[in-house]
Write a protein that binds this DNA or RNA. Sequence first.
DNA 1: CATGAATGAGTATTCATTCAT
DNA 2: CATGAATGAATACTCATTCAT
Lengths: 211, 211, 211, 211
Amino acid sequence: MQDMKEASQKSSEEPKARVPKRQRGHDRVAVLLEAAAKVFCERGYDAATMTEIAAEARSSIGSLYQFFPTKPLLAEDLHIDRLERLKAVLRDIGEKADGLSAADIGEEIFDRLAAFIEEFPEFPVLAGRRDVPRDRKARSRAELKEHLASLLRRAQPPVIDDVGLLSAIILELLRIAVTTASDPDAVEDQRLVRELRLMLRKRLEEASAKG
Amino acid sequence: MQDMKEASQKSSEEPKARVPKRQRGHDRVAVLLEAAAKVFCERGYDAATMTEIAAEARSSIGSLYQFFPTKPLLAEDLHIDRLERLKAVLRDIGEKADGLSAADIGEEIFDRLAAFIEEFPEFPVLAGRRDVPRDRKARSRAELKEHLASLLRRAQPPVIDDVGLLSAIILELLRIAVTTASDPDAVEDQRLVRELRLMLRKRLEEASAKG
Amino acid sequence: MQDMKEASQKSSEEPKARVPKRQRGHDRVAVLLEAAAKVFCERGYDAATMTEIAAEARSSIGSLYQFFPTKPLLAEDLHIDRLERLKAVLRDIGEKADGLSAADIGEEIFDRLAAFIEEFPEFPVLAGRRDVPRDRKARSRAELKEHLASLLRRAQPPVIDDVGLLSAIILELLRIAVTTASDPDAVEDQRLVRELRLMLRKRLEEASAKG
Amino acid sequence: MQDMKEASQKSSEEPKARVPKRQRGHDRVAVLLEAAAKVFCERGYDAATMTEIAAEARSSIGSLYQFFPTKPLLAEDLHIDRLERLKAVLRDIGEKADGLSAADIGEEIFDRLAAFIEEFPEFPVLAGRRDVPRDRKARSRAELKEHLASLLRRAQPPVIDDVGLLSAIILELLRIAVTTASDPDAVEDQRLVRELRLMLRKRLEEASAKG
DNA sequence: CATGAATGAGTATTCATTCAT
DNA sequence: CATGAATGAATACTCATTCAT
């Protein structure tokens, strides 16, 4: 039966994504995630349907649910995947950050994140989902900000301003770049993004100790 | 949307049956309830489908859900309706109970309740639903038992035994009658029911003060 | 089970190596059946899922289907297993029935069957399954009744009443005991069951030839 | 989703929101629009339901449809209403823009638009609706940008940079302010917004001819 | 016009069963 | 045989929209 809501005695309340144990399963999960990414990106979270995602993955609806037992969990898993990749990018930036000026670091971040979002345009959709608990959203954002802050702290000459605030600025300017990137106003937008980058550079230069 | 589970900000958590405000609605509700009664009875609660109920009522699935927003609530509303009718039967018995012997009262109860369940064979299905919280089931049963007890208390000569226990016995013997009634073992069963009635009578005679 | 067939094999050519295999299959079947028993009992037949049963048996869904090709057949096989055990109980009663009074036999039956159902609480679930053909249910019940009847026939002094009817009474009173036993209304219920036992005893005494 | 109609290119017969002729109708329309604003804002466009909007307006679903024949049209009408108000704000700014520096005009715009969106928080929801044809969105945005540009053109000393680009910058910085305003990260956010304002001021000062 | 009932296509999700490895 | 992935029909429920009163 399908309605065990009232007085359900089921012990495990929330189903968790079944972990694939075979190669076949792993592959399928990967394909499903990419299909989800595409559909979420094209339609938005609400309008995306599990059926379309399954179809996009050339899979059956049953297979989709085998690994992702609810739509929110699918989105969540995809989001987590993207966050992992994002962290990898930041780690990568970190490896060459030492000795760079804050402005250079900032620009590097800006560019890499912009590229990241161009590669994974579903990211903002996932991050902006309305049915994600506020606190989780905030936590995720705070983590990212702290990541950026730790990068800025390694600038030479050192940043004397509040790196937290600066990180927030980076993030927000980036958000613009992201949003505009999705519009096809090509020429205008590119100029706009360049402007924002420049504003960021100036701000970071101001924030650095005079060499 | 259809999946507002996670972090739903909806203020009213559980939807309540919309109360019909037009004659048309009232009629529809009545038809839907009878259809539900029929399908629940035929298939059992779990196997009954909302679609079949709607079809049985020559209604659309949407109409069904307009008035009964979930399957459990539909069953619940139907159950409540039947309980009302049952109480009416008991009230009716109460009106002629005074001065009767416990045994006569008991038999009257037995017969009337048997007739009730023959008229509303879905009653046991509704009462036995597995997804009803234990306590609600218990409460409902306790209420009914108290009703019976109050009837027995009015017997003349008075009952000197525990009327609560006796009421429980009536109820249980009745449950047998009910269950067997649904089997088509006609002849055998009728004798069985008659036997049970007789056993009940004897027990009640023993429980009464000697005249 | 189907592996009863394979029991008849050419004893000489079959190496012992296959025995443990068969033994393993046997164990697996037993574990699966017990898992099914547990899940059917907890959730009811409809709400029980093959997947949960397999999980409960720490087996895979594929394995489950290897031995029980459909859910109804699984239930059926389990039911048959329980019926075998029930018959064993009745045989056991039969061994000491001679010379006892009908009332004593009846009480013994009552107590032993009650114990049986306490041990195998899934029994009523299996017996009550809605998708079992009426006639098979009836046949099963008739068989059980005949078993009881044959026990009663051996009472001393002899029963002069219709033993079929009396068996039906025992069965029904028992059904009550069973049902109530599953409710946690402890005290009340125990008194109720004791009462039913007593009523049964009286009825059986009446049914016996005066000694 | 259930309302992806608008995107389809029905060329000839687009239903238009009925123009109410009586005062009562006018009031009703206003109430409905405000209800829609509230619900769209709380739930987002997709998750908002026509039923809830009607309920919020203490009206009936039929009434709602009398004035707004589809959900997209309702959103559209509301959006148009908000755009009117926004234009009024810009006109108002225009009345005292003469003689002000670009930086002062920019800040005025920034502050007034921020206040506007605080007053009408549904605005971003309406503007961001995914089922609005790209071109219409772009047009709307271009119009707004041109409005801002015309304001900047009246700055004294004159702006020597590309006012279109500057307007875009204002708009984007504003978008940040808006988005962050809806988060409850109070302190951090206020500092962030102040920073953005400052960055805007500096950029506009640079863009102005030296006095 | 106002009201609320009627409609049904669409959506998420489940689960018995089959199949490839 | 064991395993777990694949499948898709079935099911509860939603909601934009239409219609009768």
